[in-house]
Simulated scan of single mutants.
Amino acid sequence: MTTTATTAHQSPPAAETRSGGVGLRLGGLRRTFGTTTALDGLDLDIAPGELVALLGPSGCGKTTALRIIAGFETADAGELLMGGEDVTATPANRRDIGMVFQSYSLFPNMTAAENVAYGLRVRKAPKAERAERAAELLELVGLPGRDKHYPHQLSGGQQQRVALARALAIRPRVLLLDEPLSALDAKVRLQLREEIRRLQLELGITTVFVTHDQEEALSMADRVAVMKDGRLEQCAPPSELYERPATPFVAEFVGTMNRLPGVMGDERTVEVLGQRLPVHGDCPDAGHAVEVLLRPESLRVSAGEGGKPGAAVTADGAGPGEAATVRVATFLGGTTRLHLTTASGAEAKADLPSWEAGSLTPGSRCTLTPHDHPVLVEETA
């Protein structure tokens, strides 16, 4: 089955734009390194004040895109507009961009205040202005009283806060974040991503955030741009990306996805687990064998064997489901994930509220039925 890569929602919805920032347009950006194509005609519009996360596997081009925005890399083709101005050939030091790296990159011989004020010093701002701005930003990022501390006297989370304050000190038009939280432990990551989002909303600064962490992208961004092989697969708000992925790649990359065997029916429907479901996206001809993509929470599990393998679908589309056996039950707090095998031999994962899953222990016989939602399908080879 052929899928379409550059799908809808590359441009931000007008209602979601915020004042205070500057818009970005990446138009047909292409970048190669020898025989490797890092970017292959990347198109993306970012609204003023919007936070967009670039998400994708290693080598998909997200860091290259960020470096081109920063001016550290030059595109082979395409254009970069900032606030409507073509800055494709503008040197990095004239783009008014703040950048926070994965490694904190603080000057070890400078205090926190001196690190924050460094960009202003380079711009020859008066000493009093530098000191005032540094104190203001250290307060803003939650580090009052740490102005005279050196980097080695600060924790990793505190050092990253100083790096963020330094990037904001010059009042940049755009803020770029290159996996800034990946070196921190889980608790600090959670605290700092909430802090970054709060600051970004408060300041209204246009922000591009590169991450490989799906949870970070979905929890922080106004929109998430999923990339593959240097191209944009889909750019959409987190809920839309998760609930209505445009391609099988997006569906499987963002969150957990089951692949279950099905057969195409008439009128853009597919028969799976004894149920007829509507199909969105590319749709093979009726009668073709396909794999149906279903989220774990889109599967209903009932104790007892009400369903049978290959059960017939009723005229109204409802079906009795398919018999299955619980292999593993993993308690995850409020949710329990069941690993099941259907009577026809397919493997599936289903997420249930833990209070519903208490009787579904390993070895339990049950019935597996999908909820009636549109699904993506992919034709089997």
Rank of each mutant, 00 (worst) to 15 (best):
G307W: 07
Q191I: 02
P370F: 07
T361H: 01
G56V: 07
R121N: 13
A38W: 05
E297W: 06
E73Q: 14
D282M: 05
V301D: 05
K127A: 15
L218N: 05
E379M: 15
L168V: 09
R121C: 00
G230V: 00
V328D: 13
G28K: 05
A251D: 05
T269F: 07
T367N: 05
P48G: 13
V224D: 03
R95G: 03
R95I: 05
A381Y: 02
T367L: 08
R276V: 03
R171N: 15
P238M: 10
G157L: 11
P353M: 11
V254W: 07
L192S: 04
T336G: 04
G345V: 12
G333S: 11
E136S: 14
A315S: 14
V210T: 09
R244W: 05
G310D: 11
G49M: 09
H9I: 02
T335E: 14
P180T: 07
R133Q: 14
D86L: 10
P309Y: 12
A221M: 07
T74L: 06
L241W: 06
T36M: 03
E291N: 13
Q200M: 10
K62W: 04
A113E: 14
V250P: 02
S19H: 14
E305F: 06
T35G: 04
V254H: 06
G255I: 04
E378F: 00
R197P: 02
G156N: 11
V326R: 04
N258H: 08
T63E: 06
A246F: 07
T269W: 04
